[in-house]
Design a protein around this nucleic acid. Structure first.
Lengths: 344, 344
DNA sequence: TAAAATCCCGTTAGCGCTCACAGTCTACCA
DNA sequence: TGGTAGACTGTGAGCGCTAACGGGATTTTA
């Protein structure tokens, strides 16, 4: 398993020898500690530049029982959301001087959690960002136990729970905005294509849709609901199914933009004009949604910012932990907003 | 900069004491070395399980002068291609037992290369996957020099060059297939919306378009060419510009699907029916392209596989290096294929 | 039966760095 | 004049692990 890397590397000792100081002094210069005279500091820095010395993060991690590594756990990148989250996470991590170790976990494979936990712990990560919404089963709990005893964890897009930092978009409110917009436009028979209902975010969007319909005292039967899979193909099939089981449908809230694209396609095939015969509102506001035909009215949320906040929060918790102070349970919620275009 | 991680961790010494053996024996068990009796091995494994011992990858890296870490350098994930590459890279890395350290570099910021190099080297990565096509300037060369002297590098989607392993999709051939399809369908005034021409892949797609037109002895003037930016908005604007400077246009090869979506939108707005008045072929075959209106004829390429191959190749080079043998220059090319739908 | 080979396991010495502590040297005050 | 702060720098130990070597016990070979 171990792979030898026989490339030579410049060590702190060589720098120290060359500069005529102790390794400790070099260490102090590298880490920006005070108690080094300007004269010495400059001399050491010159030698560092000259020798192209790069401190070994590995050795530093070991000696200081710390690391500059954050673990990111995600479930894959075929969807828009996780990609945005990763983007935000990376930006903020780089800004704060953290490195990122990426771990993808497959929910269908329970022993994946064990593997991921082992990897994160073995690399001595200083903290973990959980950017994978599903965390309901036994395995996840076992994972949590293990990882938490080693490093703080911040959750993104998950159900708030005690003892954890969780950052969320207000999916429920966003979905409510979407449904309310349909109602305001005069639609009365409003269905929904949900995401996979094992996901908390999908459940929340469904609840938001229900909230809006309940406030307007509109019916919201089971046959107005179809569960989708976040893909365009799923959205297409979803609308077909919805129209079958609820023929009077005149509008639909589709829980993400990719499915909305599929729904638009299905509507065209079935001869329903959007928005005249059928109103459609999506969720996510992916960059392409303005170019759909018709352009998609949708809910915008800033997942890049969500990722950034997550890293900042983790940073904070790590600092607290470092200082020996306990971290309080935090739960942050970002507000999404509606982007009105042509489809409703 | 250093962050203390004061969580306790079980060490190899505790395992050794508990099992009544030396640390070396535990090390042998953990690493699957021979020369341990079955009896001892089982006893040690039991203690490991009982104590939930997890070897420190950090300490191992330091002691063995090796690591299980691969660096991935990318330019961000707003586009389909890089996301697919990352997916493939992650899959294969996990399969081979490597961990991934993610680095995003901003081409607009030259000193980013320095930062990335320092990070990769500091974490003692065993190899680097360069999944960022732009590598033309001075900074990149400086980066290469530095990183290469520490670890092998494999390039994805780049111009083949001596002394490096490069894995590519045959963009030129794919683009040629696209343009030839337009010609076969009877279109004769064929334009192109390219990607940013600083990118090698964008250049190659342009060359493929030229190849096809040249073979058919069709004109290919400068005014048939518009440079885009890979986005839907860019594709929209691109088609508008193209029709202005080349009014007889009856078909266009759009260098990626996102821009093609924008072009479809622009065509609708300008009253050009696709495919009757205007043929459009894209490139990438993103999952949504089958749901565009009309569905998009496009070129499919397997970037997940490209990523996987890249990691396998890097693995191979690292092994060779480990054994002290030099790695030969390799250049692998994957063939894309045409997916015919409605837009041409 | 002695010598060689084999199996199994322990000891020693680091990997490159930081922590805690122990100085040395100058400046300043009583 | 001695003493006490600072300001600066060095020393030893050790983070958790593995490479290299060594050696005793058992088996195999001549």
């Amino acid at each position: 398993m171990a792979k030898v890397n026989s490339f030579r590397r410049v060590t702190i000792r060589e720098v120290a020898a060359q500069a005529g100081v102790s390794t400790q002094t070099v260490s102090r210069v590298v880490n920006g500690h005070p108690d080094v005279s300007d004269e010495t500091r400059i001399r050491v820095q010159q030698v560092i530049a000259q020798l192209r010395y790069r401190p070994s993060g590995v050795a530093r991690s070991l000696a200081a029982r710390s690391s500059q590594m954050l673990g990111v756990v995600a479930g894959g990148f075929h969807l828009f959301g996780p990609v945005q989250l990763l983007t935000g996470i990376e930006q903020q991590a780089t800004d704060l001087g953290w490195h990122l170790m990426l771990q993808i976990v497959d929910s269908a494979n329970p022993q994946d959690y064990e593997r991921v936990a082992a990897n994160l712990i073995s690399q001595n990560v200083a903290g973990v960002i959980w950017a994978y919404p599903e965390l309901t089963g036994e395995c996840e709990r076992a994972f949590l136990q293990q990882v938490r005893s080693y490093a703080p964890v911040v959750f993104l897009s998950m159900e708030p729970c005690a003892g954890s930092a969780v950052i969320n978009v207000d999916n429920r409110h966003g979905a409510r905005l979407a449904a309310e917009h349909l109602i305001a436009r005069g639609y009365r028979h409003i269905g929904i294509i949900t995401g996979p209902l094992t996901l908390w975010s999908a459940q929340q969007r469904k609840l938001g849709w229900q909230d809006a319909l309940a406030s307007a005292e509109l019916p919201r039967h089971k046959r107005q609901i179809v569960e989708g899979d976040w893909t365009a193909a799923g959205g297409d099939a979803g609308l077909v199914k919805l129209l079958t089981q609820f023929p009077t449908l005149d509008a639909v809230f589709v829980s993400n933009d990719q499915m909305a694209l599929g729904a638009l396609k299905a509507a065209e095939r079935l001869g329903r004009r959007v928005p005249d015969d059928l109103g459609i509102v999506g969720f996510d506001d992916i960059p392409e949604s303005g170019f759909f035909k018709p352009s998609l009215t949708t809910v915008h949320h800033d997942l890049i910012e969500l990722g950034r906040i997550g890293v900042r929060e983790l940073h904070r918790v790590i600092q607290l932990h470092h200082e020996g102070r306990p971290a309080s349970t935090t739960s942050l919620v970002l507000q999404p907003w509606l982007v009105v275009r042509e489809s409703a």
